[in-house]
Design a protein around this nucleic acid. Structure first.
Lengths: 194, 194
DNA sequence: CTCATTACATAATGATCGTTATGAAACTGG
DNA sequence: CCAGTTTCATAACGATCATTATGTAATGAG
């Protein structure tokens, strides 16, 4: 019972996600969030908790709705295909929306005040999770002979995500997609194995 | 004439630079700056102008005192040596200080509120300047036959800085120097030419 | 219809933001 | 020694920050 909600909670979350994606955690104010979602402050608090909780919910949604290309990529046949798909995905996602270029996980917070340390830690953990998934995939590739014996899967995974993060920074700076694609191709030429 | 300054202006600037390096533009408050510099607010305003001007002065100093490795690297003999030195420099600088890992130009501001747009634009321009210097160097290398004819110097320059930016993000996340070096070596294995 | 419950919009909370007004303190030239 | 100038520290400015108290509107259950 009780008065029913007048807004769609997933729709509001998506709008909040877009704000955080564009402005980062600290750069996004409740005035921005209210304007983007069309939901008043107290309603946001009652639906999502405080700003940090809302940000984490947004990260969760970003991971499920936008970051899924990594989880799909690791199912490809060869490590090179995986690497290529990951970089393609990073370029595509970083330039998909003109009003929020780059990556939520990078824009969200690289540096900031001590107050927002928790949100940055959450993003770091999120990126580390992605790296772990790739590392495991490349360990398998090594066992299967897809990658030579002298490579370090953890370095390859870290290398790949380093490119992805760099691409995200460049995208946020306004680099066009074609340029980012050329960068990704260049990075791929460093890939060991076939 | 008049009452003499009781603090060293370059020393205060260096302390402010360290704060911006660590917390970014928006994350750095005047409370932080006063504590780090040991200089009261009105004195900071009278010496440097407002926050934006102080940040730009800090960027200037960062460029001269810490970012100079790029300008030195382009004097090396081959493009590969240049690329190697740039990445080595990025890794070293990103991990030189434990209390301000990463790069001033990245930490300073990737995303944020609209109020700090100007500072982000300044950083984007700074990074673009570095890229232009490298591009010109690689154009020369191409003319001299140090780089093959089918490469695009602007892609190589952008590629190199994309790695550097990615490395900076990883360093800010706490990656150890050794890991970043391994990433840099991996990136270098994609370098065309000898 | 009444009541308990939930969500609503308005507006206020204390804290902190960047910035500056204020007046005393410390120096130099006359 | 005094007048003029600059810096000093204290404290305040309005604006905005995240968060919430308040009272009304809208529902379902009894």
């Amino acid at each position: 019972m009780g008065r029913p909600r007048t807004f769609d909670i997933e729709q509001a979350l998506e709008a909040a996600l877009a704000v955080f994606w564009r402005k980062g955690y600290e750069g996004a104010s409740y005035a921005d969030l209210v304007e983007a979602t069309g939901v008043e402050r107290p309603a946001l608090y009652s639906a999502f908790g405080n700003k940090e909780a809302l940000f984490l919910r947004a990260l969760e949604r970003y991971n499920a709705h936008y970051g899924s290309y990594v989880w799909k990529a690791i199912e490809l046949e060869t490590s090179r295909q995986v690497a290529q798909r990951v970089l393609e995905g990073a370029v595509e996602l970083s330039t998909r929306f003109d009003d929020r270029t780059g990556c939520f996980g990078i824009n969200g917070g690289v540096a900031g005040s001590d107050d927002s340390e928790a949100s940055r830690r959450a993003l770091i953990k999120w990126r580390a999770d992605g790296e772990a998934v790739l590392r495991e995939r490349f360990e398998r590739a090594k066992r299967e002979g897809d990658l030579p014996n002298d490579v370090d899967p953890s370095v390859l995974a870290a290398y790949l995500l380093t490119i992805a993060h760099g691409v995200a920074v460049q995208a946020k700076a306004g680099f066009p997609r074609e340029k980012l694609s050329a960068i990704a191709r260049q990075a791929l030429s460093a890939w060991p194995g076939k």
